[in-house]
Amino acid sequence: MFKARIIHRYILFEMLSPYFVSLGVFTFVLLMAKIMELTDLVVSRGVGLDVVGRLLMYTMPYFLVFTIPMATLLGVLIGFLRLSSDNEVVALKAAGISLTKLLPPVAALALFSWLVTSMLALWALPWGNNRFENLIYQVASTQAELALKEGSFIDTFPNLVIYIDKLPGGGVLKDVFIVDQRDKKKQHTIVAKRGKFFPAKKGKLTLRLYEGGIYAVDPQRKSPQTAAFETYDITLNAGAFVAKQRKEKHEKEMYVTELLAAMGKVNPDSKEYYLLDMELQKKFSLPFACLVMALIGLPLGIGSKSGRSWGVAVALIVFLAYYLLLSAAWSFGEGGYYPPVVGMWVPNIVFALVGVLMFRQALHEAPIPLLDKLDRLPELIRRLRHRGQDEATED
C-alpha cells in the first residue's frame, strides 16, 4: 500500500507539470486572439484599458471550459510518454504493477478537471457571459458607435434606420444614410459624408452629422423638400436603447434553472427550444470531456514511441477531431435533425469508445493500429524531405 501511494504520487506529479503548462499556453493563445479583437476598442473607439481588462476577465470561463480538457489530455499523454520513453512503465510491469493499478492518479487528475470545468460551465460561464453583455451595452450607452456595424442596416434605435458604409476608427462614421421616422407626419431621409457620436445629458446621445442633406416629402403638398447642411445633430435616447436590448437574457447567459424555466415556456418542436436544450446539455457534456480525454491520453502515452513534440501534435489532432465532431453535432442539432441530448453527447460517446478500445489494447500489450500509423508519420515526412533535397541537388 505504501509503495503504491509513492508510485501514484510520482505519476501524478509527472502529469501535473505538462498539465499546467499546456493549460497556461492554450489559454494564453486564445486570450491573445481575443486581445487582438478587443484592441480595436482601445485604438479606434477610445474605450479605456480598464473596460477591456474586465471584458477579458469575463471571457476567461469560456476559454477555460475548452482548455482544461485539452490540458487534461496533454498532461496524461506527455506524463506517460515520458515514463514510457524512459522504460519506467516496463520497470513497473516487471515489478508486478499492472496498467490498471496506474489508473488512480489519472482518475484523480481527470476528476479534478471535471469538477473545475463543471463549476465553470454551470456558474462562471453564464455569469461571465452576462457581465460581458451588460458591460458592452453599458459602454454603448455613452459610446453608441460600439453597437454599430459597417455595411449593414441598424434598427436598434427607436424609429431610426441607420446605414454606415465605413467605420474607420476614432468614433467616426463615414457615408451615413438615415431614415428618420420619429415624426409620424413626415419621414426624413438624411445623407451625410461623416458622423460622430457625442455624450449629451444623462441617458442621451448626440449624433452629429457633417456635410450632408435632408430629403423629405410633404404628404399634403406631395412635393419633395431638400436642405443641405454643414452640421446636423440628432438626439438619441441611449438609455431606452440599452434597456430594450438587455430586457431578456440570451441562452448563453442562463443558469440551469433559468434554462429549464425557459424551455417550459416554448414549443418543444421550435428552434428556440433546441437552442436552449443544446445549451443545457453543453453545460454537462463539455466537463465530461475531461474524463474522456484522460482515458484516451493514457494508452496514447504508453503506446507512442515518438518524442514529446510528436505527443503534443497527436494530442492536438485528437482534440481537433473532437471539436470538429462537436461543431457538426451542434449544427445538426440546431437544425432539429435529432434531439440535442443525442447530438451534444455523441462526441463524448465516440471518443470514450475509442479510449476504451485503445486502453484494452494497451492492457494486453497489443499494438494500437492508429497509433502505429501516427508514429510512422515523422519517419515518412523525414524520408520525403530527404528525397526532395536529393532531387534538388541533382538538378
Rank of each mutant, 00 (worst) to 15 (best):
A315S: 14
V21Q: 06
Y338S: 10
S270M: 07
P224S: 08
L135M: 15
G46I: 08
M263D: 13
E272R: 14
Q220S: 10
L357I: 14
I35S: 04
S85R: 15
F26I: 06
A108Y: 09
R194V: 05
S331V: 14
R385P: 01
L64Y: 01
L167I: 10
A200S: 13
L357K: 08
H386A: 13
L77T: 09
S84A: 11
L109D: 00
N129T: 15
Q181P: 05
Q361F: 10
N134R: 12
K166N: 12
K265C: 06
V312K: 04
L357Y: 15
P69H: 01
L83S: 02
P61S: 11
Q138A: 07
L30F: 15
A33E: 09
G343T: 05
A124Y: 11
F66C: 05
F229I: 10
W310H: 09
F197P: 02
Q181D: 13
S141M: 09
P224L: 09
H188N: 13
K247I: 06
V191L: 12
K3M: 15
F132S: 03
F112N: 01
A91Q: 05
D233H: 13
L371A: 02
V47T: 11
V256G: 05
M70H: 01
S152K: 14
I381Y: 09
K222E: 12
V266G: 08
E379S: 14
S141W: 01
V354A: 12
P299I: 05
R5Q: 15
P224I: 09
G195F: 07
G297W: 02
A228Q: 14
K201L: 12
Q187C: 03
V312S: 03
A95Q: 14
K185Y: 00
G24Y: 06
A227R: 14
W330F: 10
D165M: 09
T156H: 07
I178K: 04
Y10I: 04
G307D: 03
A216S: 14
V242Y: 01
K283I: 03
E145I: 07
A362G: 02
F157T: 00
D277N: 14
D175A: 12
K247Y: 05
D180S: 07
E253P: 03
G333R: 06
V172Q: 13
R182V: 06
G79F: 00
P340W: 09
Y215D: 07
A95M: 13
L99R: 04
S113P: 01
K249Y: 07
L74S: 04
E251A: 09
M57A: 15
P268M: 15
